[in-house]
Design a protein around this nucleic acid. Sequence first.
DNA 1: TGTGAGTTGATTTTT
DNA 2: TCAACTCACA
Length: 800
Amino acid sequence: MSLFPMDRLSDAASDHALRSPLLDSLTDAQRAAVCHIEGPLLILAGPGSGKTRVVTHRVAWMLASGIPARQILALTFTNKAADEMRGRLERLAPRQAVWMGTFHRFCARMLRSYAELVGLRENFSIYDTDDSRKILQIALDEEGIDLTHTSPDAIAQAISWAKNNLVTADRYEPRRGHAIGGIVEKVYPTYQKLMLRSSAVDFDDLLVHVAILLKENPEVRRQLDERYRYIMVDEYQDTNLAQYTIVRALSIDHPNLAVTGDPDQSIYGWRGANLSNILEFEKDYPKVKVVRLEQNYRSTKSILHIADQLIRHNIRRKEKDLFTDNPQGNRVRLATFPTQRDEAETIAEEIAHEVRTGKRRPRDFAIFYRTNALSRQIEHALREQVIPYQIVNGLEFYQRKEIKDVLAYLQLVNNPRSDAALLRIINTPTRGIGKSTIAKIQEVARDRAIPLLDAARMAGTISGLAKKSAVAVAKFVAMLDLIGTKATAPVEELVGYVLTETGYREVLENSEAEEDHERLANLEELLTAASEFDLRNPGGAGLEQFLEDSSLVADTDAFESDSDKVTMMTLHAAKGLEFPAVYIVACEEGLLPHERSRRDEEKLEEERRLLFVGITRAMQDLTLTWAQYRMFRGQQAPAVASSFLMELPRHEMELIGGNMGRGSAPRYLAWDEESQLSPEDDDLEFPPREQDALIDAPMYDDVNQLEPEEMQTRKAKESKTFSSGIVTAADLLAGKSPSGGISPYAFKHGMMVQHPEYGPGQIVALSGNGAKRVANVRFMEGGEERKFVIVHSKLTPLTE
DNA sequence: TGTGAGTTGATTTTT
DNA sequence: TCAACTCACA
């Protein structure tokens, strides 16, 4: 017997509905949202109000009501949110193929099918900020634009702004009085032309192309509207015009559009998010049903009250009454420190204390800051206290140079027109193709309006190019072609091949630099990711998908919720998460609100919302901190407490240290006597720590305390980013090797091996998993290459 | 063409 | 503070 009624329901009032186990655990408001399926729906969900729960239950309810999974589309802003949703739905309604993912991923998918309609090829590349900046630079060079009064960054932002507002290159008109408008007007079309020539898109293009596609092809629009009859959009307050246009276009014939969001948590205005989209949703869809989820299940009364008091200072919002049945809880703390160093150390000491006394575990804590740069001191302090932590941030895996280099080779294999990829690796590792040679190739490409690689193929005929250079280029092209023959091989094999053929691995291995060894470890990690990808996509031919996956992952996706570590991240990255104890540091003028937002009232409100988001992540304990002196551009500079702190009901809070900048604050006030420092400790030197602090410290598996090298290897072993409940290479490694044979994982990329018949050789690539793992070996004699199924082979590692 | 020292300039948030 | 860029030299 089925648990769920299979008949279509359109109304919560049905007796049937009230009895379903899917619905009993919900409040009235939540149930109303879950059961409203036909027609537009706006869910205004305050922080901690069980929004994800409602969304997933709603999808499960739709499925239970007989709506086919393929008609449902759930759009989010981050992969993290999509994964979370998918995981929860899996528990409610297992094995249902509902498409859940980010806007960008959805658009990429649509574009693969309709590429030619917008002038792309279906194997188009997705450029990240780096790549597209490079193309912009070429465009600027081509137009011969002088940048003395502005920066490429500013131009890029202006173009991005235009795209987010669906202003295409041919229709761009500079606003009057907009200084760089004239430049943008010239460069934008050139940039776009170059992108198309490379068959590439930037992040904004993904959305713009799809929006325009839907606008200009009524038949396509109609089909997709028909296909995706039930659409849900998460974090609707963060949609920009392009996203709004896409969603609307898909909800004309079937206006079953459910959006969830909270105007108070809109923090992406700088990315073109338009608060009006949610504030005026009711105008777009007059028949909309509005559900307000105002009860908070996350935070204590104290925390929620502080959040509420703060956000009331915003004018552009929908009034909400946040309330909770949770206990009052501890008072929110507001702490002042003499310097950033005291701030960092005191927080670290406090966390260490709580962990050592068994009150809390590292994973219970989160530290939020406005800018990534602020993480350094805190990181240092946590390290001193031997507290394991994870930073969700900045130089994430796929942004590292070595990873991007290798991926650029892959990108070129997939899309030989990709100029950005070619420029990246034409001389990496160095192969004697210098600046002047590249300039000549670029010139040819420009004159003939062809991709750089095609121009490079003509190196022999380019006049004025030294013979030596021409030969180097020819060799490079030949090497690319050779790699290209492996295009359909498993991705892991391909990556291994790139490392060998290009000499990339050799260069790093022969290097003395510590840094280069780290790079090798990172590449090892890339191989692991590739192997896991292959495992999930049997049948090969997944290169394009692999590249797409790697360009659409973001820092925040790296957050590991199940490891026992203190989490550090920016306030932006914190959205959607919750922690028992939260610290928000550096609540200072110029940082929070940020310098660039202080003058503009609208931006200032966004900064306030950012703090609101941070505050409402806390479940039990919240501490806001600021320091009277902070390091700025390498120099200690006096700081002023954030004006937002003045908006909080300070009489309800626990004030620690100083008196908010008025008069002479006591110089040192810490949370317990022992952690007081002497005034001389102001400088940058860290005081020597007591030895025993290190000795009796960790009772947990501490990763951060390891030496960098060891840490690197450990990290490499932890499968990252792509793992998703599937057996990983590491899992297999831990298990038994097939009886009698050598373990399939005994061999590493680049390793020297011995074969009884063929003699010594080197592993140039590996692929496959378990008993099917295959090694490609190139033998010394004759340079011949052969493949071996490892468990059946007579290969032995050749130790040096 | 590649390397290394020295200089300069910039530092928000992210798909 | 630190990374990116420039310039001189091998």
